[in-house]
Amino acid sequence: MSTSTRTPRTSRRLAALAVGLTAVLAASVGPSFAAPHPSTGPAVTRAAAAAAPSVVNPGNQVSLQYDHAYLPMTATGGAAPYTWSAVNLPTGASINSSTGLISGLLRGSGVRTVTVTAKDTTGAAASTTFTWRVIRDACPRC
């Protein structure tokens, strides 16, 4: 019986694969990252796009009527500073448009679905929605 080793053939295949892969990568990356050449004009540069903003969900809120609300909202990504807005806040609460802080004396009771939106300096906006339940205390002055 004769035995043959396949290492020379395998080595040649791997070498050919490496050369081919190098050629493909060089062709796809090529001039977009190359330095300017007098005959080709300026090099093409690619600016990284800023990530879209994302508003962090604070989770569902439960408060007692006549308590003071203090809920700082936060956002990530985008181009700070953000402009904040909110819809359907409990009665007596408001949001600071420059800091994102929701505060105020909660005067009404009930369950509300609140939507908070942050808009960055480029105009990109993101929002989050959560429920806020304000419970009427059985004895608010006891």
Rank of each mutant, 00 (worst) to 15 (best):
H37N: 13
H37P: 00
P38A: 15
P38T: 11
P38E: 15
S39H: 11
T40Y: 11
P42K: 11
V44K: 05
V44G: 04
T45P: 11
T45F: 04
R46S: 12
R46H: 14
A47S: 14
A48Q: 15
A48R: 15
A48M: 14
A49D: 12
A50Q: 12
A51W: 02
A51I: 10
A52K: 15
A52D: 14
A52Q: 15
A52L: 15
A52H: 15
P53E: 05
P53R: 08
P53Y: 04
S54W: 04
S54E: 08
S54M: 13
S54Q: 10
S54F: 10
S54N: 11
S54T: 14
V55F: 00
V56Q: 11
V56R: 02
V56T: 11
V56G: 00
N57E: 04
N57H: 03
N57K: 09
N57I: 03
P58W: 01
P58M: 04
P58C: 07
P58S: 07
P58I: 01
P58D: 01
N60F: 01
N60Y: 04
N60M: 11
Q61D: 04
Q61S: 10
V62Q: 06
V62R: 13
V62K: 13
S63M: 10
S63Y: 06
L64C: 11
L64R: 00
L64N: 05
Q65F: 00
Q65S: 05
Q65R: 04
Y66D: 03
Y66P: 00
Y66W: 01
Y66N: 03
D67E: 07
D67Q: 01
D67A: 06
D67K: 00
H68E: 13
A69F: 04
P72E: 03
M73S: 08
M73A: 04
M73Y: 03
M73C: 08
T74Y: 05
T74I: 08
T74Q: 13
T74C: 06
T74L: 07
T74V: 12
A75W: 00
A75V: 01
A75C: 02
A75R: 00
T76I: 11
T76S: 08
T76N: 13
G77W: 09
G77D: 12
G77N: 13
G77F: 01
G78I: 05
G78N: 00
A79F: 03
A79M: 08
A79N: 15
A80G: 13
Y82K: 03
T83F: 10
W84H: 01
